[in-house]
Design a protein around this nucleic acid. Structure first.
Length: 278
DNA sequence: ATCCTATCCTGGCTGC
DNA sequence: TGCAGCCAGGATAGGA
């Protein structure tokens, strides 16, 4: 399930293929993929054609294809959100199933967007900041300091897990890395944000960053076969997961079987001993 | 602010 | 074996 580390992996590995290339033609095979201009395939394609990809970056779980005219004048961006099952790859899978968008580029390169469950969305906009305006801070950015996190969390009272999944509170975490971060911080996902002391908050802050950094270093998690890298390879972080998908297996810290519970209607994995609900 | 439900989707699994 | 029904999961919307 693509979260921040998976999207970061996609961006890093796509960039050398896409940077500086011109968009020659675009095909859309499922109109509802196009979020902006909403479901207007012809306008979407006409807008993109002729523009150049000047950079490939990330914000939260969005891939950002920065666009320019004549490789010089900034124009705007094409945003791609993979949601559950989206894949951005540089070669076709051999089967046309689930192919939603195709970008034909200069230099005989082609970018394919596959999306089995049709949740993924694509935007083309002159003002990407407007689409991204509601997102919370980037957890690995220099601006996301411990004092910033302390202040934000002190203003909340809800359960930790739904809070960390809230993209307006902090951007980029999903089900896997929230569970992993809470385990590493030894905090129960149902703990209320206003019951944490300063040391709890510090551990959570460190755990979020460490969890994301390690996952990026391992090129993301391919847990269910959904996430693949642009070259078709899988991630490696699934081998390093401590709790996610580890139900009934012994906790690496204390040996107690990992439990799968439900928190905020979401499947959740914990060690009941290491993460007590005080 | 917080919490719950519904919606969007399909492949895979469960149970009869 | 076959098939209906359920579930996961990111994000958002609407109601309590």
């Amino acid at each position: 399930l693509p979260e921040l580390p998976e999207v970061e992996t996609v961006v890093r590995e796509l960039a050398p293929h896409l940077q500086g290339r011109r968009i020659l033609d675009v095909e859309v095979d499922w109109a509802r993929t196009i979020q902006q201009p909403q479901e207007d395939i012809d306008l979407f394609c006409a807008t993109l054609c002729g523009l150049d990809i000047s950079g490939v970056t990330r914000r939260a779980k969005y891939v950002i294809l920065e666009l320019a005219q004549d490789n010089a004048t900034p124009w705007g961006a094409c945003l791609i959100h993979l949601r559950m099952s989206g894949r951005l790859v540089m070669q076709p899978t051999g089967r046309p199933e689930h192919l939603r968008v195709t970008w034909h580029l200069s230099g005989r390169k082609t970018l394919y967007f596959y999306n089995m469950r049709k949740f993924g969305r694509v935007w083309v906009t002159r003002h990407p900041g407007q689409v991204l305006s509601e997102l919370g801070p980037e957890p690995l950015s220099a601006a996301f300091t411990l004092p910033v996190f302390e202040k934000r969390i002190s203003q909340r009272r809800g359960m930790l897990k739904p809070l960390l999944l809230n993209q307006q509170f902090i951007a980029g975490l999903g089900n896997i890395y929230v569970d992993e971060s809470l385990f590493q911080a030894r905090l129960h996902p149902k703990r209320k944000a206003d019951t944490l002391d300063k040391e709890d908050v510090r551990r959570l802050y460190e755990a979020i960053q460490a969890t994301l950094r390690q996952a990026i270093a391992k090129h993301g998690t391919t847990f269910d076969g959904l996430f693949v890298r642009p070259d078709g390879e899988t991630g490696r972080q699934q081998e390093g997961l401590a709790v996610y998908g580890q139900a009934d297996l012994p906790c690496a810290r204390c040996g107690t079987p990992i439990e799968r519970i439900t928190v905020g209607q979401r499947g959740t994995h914990i060690c009941p001993v290491c993460q007590p609900l005080v």
